[in-house]
Simulated scan of single mutants.
Amino acid sequence: MDWSGIFAFSIPPLETLVRGTVMYWLLFLLFRFVVRRDVGSMGIADILLIVIVADAAQNGMAGDGKSVSDAALLVSTLVAWNMALDRVAFHFPWMRRFVDPEKIMLIRNGRKLRGNMRRQSITDEELEAKYRQQGIECIEDVKALYLEADGNVSVIKRK
């Protein structure tokens, strides 16, 4: 068995760090600003997109890397960027606004906010399903409904 082939770097470690960093930020920006934030669920198309993006990004990140060390360094780079973003966002509100999308009000005092729905590509049917899941029968009983940063929905009932 060729132990050096398994554990020795097959490409320069700095190249792996740069590739991992570039792909992390490209994917972060793509998913943060381009990919639609869903209404609390993942569909088949969303899962397919993630699988395809992962496969497409793999070559850009790994290059000619073939060893365990190359893969370990690449994974460590991606995890480090993720942890760094979380930590910076925790300590600095301006960064939190960049990392996490703001909540968006979709219903106010029983009325749909069509502009916000349109910007988030949320249909009437999706919105109605969300307040029904909270046990609310009609929109007039909703004081406020928000699409949260994580894609879930928060509902405040009228008294």
Rank of each mutant, 00 (worst) to 15 (best):
I139L: 15
A54Y: 06
C138D: 14
N109K: 12
E137I: 13
R87M: 06
A54N: 09
L73V: 07
R87W: 01
V68D: 04
L113N: 08
M105R: 14
N82L: 05
M105V: 12
R87E: 03
A72I: 14
I50H: 10
M61K: 01
R87A: 08
E140A: 05
W81H: 03
A54I: 11
A144C: 07
K103V: 04
M95C: 11
V88C: 12
H91C: 11
L78W: 04
V68W: 12
P101H: 06
I47A: 13
R132Y: 12
D141V: 09
A56G: 15
M117I: 07
R118L: 08
R114M: 06
I107R: 02
K112S: 10
D46L: 13
A54M: 09
H91R: 12
D46V: 01
L73D: 00
T77V: 06
L74F: 02
Q120F: 10
A71S: 08
A84L: 08
A72V: 14
I47P: 05
D124T: 11
P93Y: 02
V68A: 15
M95L: 15
K103R: 14
L78S: 03
P93C: 06
F90N: 09
D55S: 09
R119H: 08
L49F: 10
A56M: 11
G110W: 00
M95H: 09
I52R: 02
K66H: 10
A56K: 10
F92H: 13
L113G: 03
A80E: 02
L145S: 02
N82W: 01
A62G: 03
R96A: 12
W81Y: 06
F92M: 11
I136C: 10
L48K: 06
V99M: 08
V79I: 14
D70R: 01
Q134I: 14
R111G: 03
I44T: 11
K130C: 15
F90A: 09
G110N: 02
W94D: 06
M61A: 11
V88D: 05
I52F: 02
L85Q: 03
D46A: 14
E128T: 00
N109A: 10
A45E: 02
A80K: 01
S69Q: 07
L106C: 11
N116I: 02
F90L: 09
F98D: 08
S67Y: 00
R119G: 11
G65P: 00
R132G: 03
I104F: 03
I104M: 08
L145K: 00
D46M: 12
A71N: 02
N109M: 09
M105A: 14
I122Q: 01
Y131G: 00
R111I: 05
A62Y: 04
R111F: 07
C138M: 12
A129H: 07
M117P: 03
D124W: 06
E102H: 12
F90Y: 07
G135T: 13
V75P: 02
A45K: 13
H91S: 14
D124M: 10
G63I: 00
E126F: 07
Q120S: 15
Q133E: 13
D100S: 09
S69E: 01
A71E: 00
M61D: 00
D124G: 08
V68M: 13
F90C: 06
G60Q: 07
A144W: 07
E102R: 13
I50T: 14
E102M: 10
I52D: 01
A71C: 04
L74S: 01
E102S: 12
M105L: 12
E137A: 14
D100R: 04
